[in-house]
């Protein structure tokens, strides 16, 4: 059943509506929220919502509980290819928990949060932005990891990044929900403005596995689920561009690199010269790689999950 979670009148003859598909069957009170589209340039979650919705429709008799699917928290951003909220230039994921009588973004954030509160699990799906490609991963803060990690391992992702808390992240949907006791996992995968079907399918398999584990889906077959690498901040190496130019990758995304390997080159098309090489800061899995070629000094080129140097073994 399609329900409107929040709505507001725009200036000219149009309502902004935040909608969800509430898919329900059986007697169980358990409820899972699948939420995406907070950033208008992150579209991987669109395909996940479609595939999951189709699957649940076809397997509705096997469902016991409620799956609330929120495909677009920021519909105006998705419609206009804008990361933030059009007209406000605000990052929606810095407006939570919102304010009931606040500004338009704050009111919407409040109503969304109120609607999701009390769910058993919430999965907040983000793609990367247009600049970076990411392998399917879940991110969580250290204080929430004890509770969230067992669920993260069910979701068929490659990597779980347990990071330090930052005050600025207290304005996110995930932090706000976790603070109210609604267990919320943040997924990052793929790249902005694109759909990576392979990753979407991988996560949908993980969500189905989670539902089976929570006894909300029965009589369904679940394939093999990946055991993610779980890592703390210290195990992640960063490669930032050493110069301005055009980044041309020389290494395959998702591959294992050794410290000092050339990940790619920063070139100058005007002079036909290599300006600098972007070099691996440590050995390990290249789980983030720059997708958008134009760089300034400091632009993120890659993240590496530190591992033993297997290439040299």
């Amino acid at each position: 059943m399609i329900k409107t979670v929040s709505q507001i009148n725009l200036a000219v003859n149009e309502k902004l509506k935040i909608q969800k598909n509430s898919i329900k069957n059986g007697t169980s009170k358990k409820r899972i929220c699948i939420v995406t589209g907070t950033h208008g340039d992150e579209l991987e979650g669109q395909y996940i919502c479609y595939v999951l919705g189709k699957y649940l429709k076809e397997n509705i008799s096997r469902l016991n509980g409620t799956i609330d699917v929120y495909p677009a928290l920021n519909p105006l951003g998705i419609d206009s290819i804008m990361r933030g909220i059009p007209g406000y230039d605000l990052d929606m994921n810095r407006t939570f928990p919102g304010i009931e009588s606040g500004t338009m973004p704050e009111m919407i954030a409040y109503e969304i949060l109120e609607d999701m509160k009390g769910a058993d699990i919430c999965i907040d799906i983000h793609a990367s932005n247009i600049f970076l490609r990411e392998i399917p991963q879940i991110r969580m803060s250290i204080p929430t990891s004890e509770v969230l990690l067992p669920y993260a391992k069910m979701l068929n992702v490659d990597f779980v990044w347990v990071h330090a808390s930052a005050t600025v992240l207290e304005s996110t949907l995930a932090h706000s929900l976790n603070s109210t006791g609604t267990k919320t996992l943040v997924v990052e995968m793929g790249v902005g403005m694109r759909i990576t079907k392979e990753y979407c399918k991988q996560l949908v398999d993980g969500i189905i596995n989670l539902l089976v584990n929570l006894e909300m889906l029965t009589d369904v077959e679940v394939g093999e689920i990946r055991e993610p690498v779980v890592s703390l901040d210290g195990a992640v190496g960063f490669v930032n561009s050493p110069a301005a130019g055009i980044f041309v990758p020389d290494t395959e995304f998702g591959s294992i690199v050794s410290e000092g390997d050339i990940i790619g080159r920063i070139v100058n098309p005007l002079t036909g010269e290599i300006v600098e090489n972007a070099v691996a800061s440590c050995s390990g899995l290249l789980f983030t790689l720059r997708e958008y070629p134009v760089v300034y000094g400091g632009s993120l080129i890659a993240r590496i999950l530190r591992q033993e140097d297997k290439k040299n073994d």
């Binding site: 990361r83 933030g84 932005n129 600049f131 600025v168 960063f238 930032n240 134009v294 300034y296 000094g297 400091g298 632009s299 993120l300």
Partner: peptide, 22 residues
């Protein structure tokens, strides 16, 4: 200009970080 990040949301900054952090 490039990534639409806000310099006034990057303090105290990080000299080895992303462009606006720098």
């Amino acid at each position: 200009a490039m990534d639409n990040t806000d310099i006034n949301r990057m303090f105290p900054g990080y000299n080895l970080g992303e462009t606006t952090q720098r």
